[in-house]
């Protein structure tokens, strides 16, 4: 058992944990930050993704004590950070995920959103191909990824003041309405 300290979502915390605990275990079971999820516990799924000094990192493979002095961001940190910088509501990316239906069971999403956050930090206007690659270490079993891509694109569009193309089902429904309206 060692005591060590690091920054979590902007706060400096001191934690006592055995050396063989992972960051994931410390976050979830010591700090109560259960937003970070566990899907495989051995690096295969990305559910436990957090940001370490801004980079997406797998908490399940990180020895807790090794983050001594580092800056960790978990999903719980995004909204407070957004508010602190004068924003309202949730982080725009979180909001976009909600707005675009990207959240089904939601279990992959904390990790997914943090991977997307890191992408936008270094590339504010990614293409779909870039989005695909940046999220390719986060497995989602529910969505087929489409609405996740749309959410990231929607957040980008909102930040840039542009609009996104109609989704397949929207375009098709619009067509259907037009057909119905014409006598």
């Amino acid at each position: 058992m060692t005591v060590f300290s690091f920054h979590i979502n902007g706060d400096r915390v001191e934690v006592a944990a055995p050396d063989h605990w992972t960051l994931l275990e410390v976050l979830r079971y010591r700090l109560g930050l259960t937003g970070t999820k566990q899907g495989c516990d051995k690096g295969d799924c990305g559910a436990c993704t957090v940001l370490v000094d801004g980079r997406p990192w797998l908490a399940c493979l990180t020895l807790a004590k090794s983050v001594e002095g580092r800056e960790i961001t978990t999903i719980e940190g995004l909204m407070p950070a957004h508010r602190k910088s004068g924003g309202a509501g949730a982080d725009p990316l979180q909001d976009a995920f909600d707005r675009c239906g990207a959240l089904q069971c939601g279990f992959c999403q904390p990790g997914m959103i943090l991977s997307a956050r890191a992408l936008l930090a270094r590339n504010p206007r990614p293409t779909r191909v870039e989005i695909r690659h940046a999220l390719s270490g986060n497995l989602c079993r529910c969505t087929g990824y489409t609405q996740i891509f749309e959410a990231v694109e929607s957040a980008v569009a909102q930040a840039c003041g542009t609009t996104t193309a109609a989704r397949a089902w929207e375009a098709q429904r619009e067509r259907a309405c037009e057909r119905e309206d014409t006598p």
């Binding site: 970070t36 999903i75 719980e76 979180q94 909001d95 959240l103």
Partner: peptide, 19 residues
């Protein structure tokens, strides 16, 4: 195409799962 009731709680990590 409305939002879901629990979307934001999931997006912010507040939603509780069994573990």
């Amino acid at each position: 195409a409305l939002r879901k009731l629990d979307g934001l709680s999931k997006a912010t990590g507040a939603a509780l799962y069994a573990d």
